[in-house]
Design a protein around this nucleic acid. Structure first.
Lengths: 229, 229
DNA sequence: CTCATCAGTCTTGTATGCAAGGCTGATGAG
DNA sequence: CTCATCAGCCTTGCATACAAGACTGATGAG
């Protein structure tokens, strides 16, 4: 395989962030090995990395699966994101001008993806805004952590069919950036908390209303109504 | 190998937290395989997990090494810890009584380790206090993240020979717990920031004074003064 | 028809063998 | 003596082979 081609785990995470790999999907070692034209060993390494990052899990002798977070785990993931972003905003003393520039550029990309109806890019960029922000503050460790957490929350949103309006999120991002530009970190943290909270709120309502959504969808896809074989 | 015996990566992390594995130490695949009586494959998996967690790194065809954080990385690690703990304290609304109970019990263990001069347990417990706190708040995701971050900061402290007084840290922990018990989360967050800051401050001063410490130690250990073979 | 049993197939778990590259120390030219 | 060169050793990287367990679907007893 070309040395320049992106690593397998990167490809999988990108697919998750873009929404093309959903929670619960099976990731067979041999299948991936065939697709990427490598041996099972390399695939296995990638899967182990993803498992360590909390993105997939293995069921012994059964297979690898993308995580399906429970409601409790989903809440923890959102709380974790919220805490980390609150924390970085509380820790940072000042906000450099180039941070604002980067964020504004990112928001432009978001708007572009929304305009062109590119669902994958839109999903990716909306999540990546938060990573971008932390990275702009110069902390790569927290940025990496937040990237994994974002992957989890994307899976959660898809799992619980949260369709929190993309334009609304983008507007939130813009408001947060504007507030950061004024230097009012405290207010920015409040807005960030509200933003994450509104995304989270949208999905917990849905799972509460329709906990059997995936099963229902599956039953609709297979239209057999009688019981005969 | 016994199925009940702890996994290799766990053993290594515990050793790091206890201070018996230091930054820069080489971890050869074959050596570990021999020690744990497994094949290189299993060792490799464990090392890949640790690499993903940011605890070891591999130099291609040269070997696996425990990370040696640069000053910048060290500062980022401390900032990350600080941000996460600030964040969780800002996010949590109230503090349950059993959280206080757990923390007080933990502090008791710390004091016991200090009294009995058990360096390994002392190092482990002082770092674990923070993990314990986050875990007591019910967020396992953040607790896991903090555990890895603690491993990094332990390595950093040893690398830069910070001997921030254990009793002092323990006293800090007690003050923080007392403040949490009163429900004043804001004040607790301030104390926590100061606590982490003081630990960090202790080591940055040292590296600033003596950036060649490890080399100097190595030269002292090998007392050859003449150049002859 | 219902249900327990079991062989067959498919999955991951683990060990092993070989390939590729880095490091070291001997060796010989200058 | 100094230094460039290179063979040998040691390391990880990767592929493959086999072992062990889980699921499935056929089969036969009741």
């Amino acid at each position: 395989m070309d040395p320049k081609s992106p690593p397998i785990d990167r490809v999988i995470v990108d697919a998750i962030l873009a929404g093309s790999i959903r929670a619960g999907m099976r990731l067979g070692e041999q299948d991936l090995a065939t697709l990427f034209e490598v041996s099972r060993t390399s695939v296995r390494e990638a899967l182990i990395r993803l498992e360590t990052r909390g993105i997939v899990q293995v069921s012994p002798r059964r297979g690898w699966f993308v995580i399906e977070p429970s409601l409790k785990e989903a809440q923890e993931a959102f709380q974790a994101r919220c805490a980390i972003e609150m924390g970085i905003l509380s820790t940072v003393a000042t906000v450099e001008p180039d941070v604002i520039t980067k964020l504004r550029h990112h928001i432009e990309q978001e708007r572009e993806a929304i305009r062109s109806d590119d669902v994958g890019a839109r999903s990716y960029l909306l999540g990546d805004f938060h990573v971008c922000m932390v990275e702009a503050f110069g902390n790569h460790i927290l940025a990496d952590i937040l990237r994994d957490l974002t992957a989890r929350t994307v899976l959660i949103s898809a799992l619980y069919q949260s369709t929190h309006d993309a334009t609304e999120s983008c507007d939130d991002h813009e408001r947060i950036t504007d507030t950061l530009a004024t230097g009012d970190l405290r207010r920015a943290a409040e807005l960030m908390t509200a933003h994450i909270g509104s995304v989270e709120g949208g999905l917990t309502k849905r799972i509460d209303r329709d906990p059997l959504l995936d099963l229902r969808q599956a039953l609709q896809l297979s239209p057999r109504k009688g019981g005969s074989g």
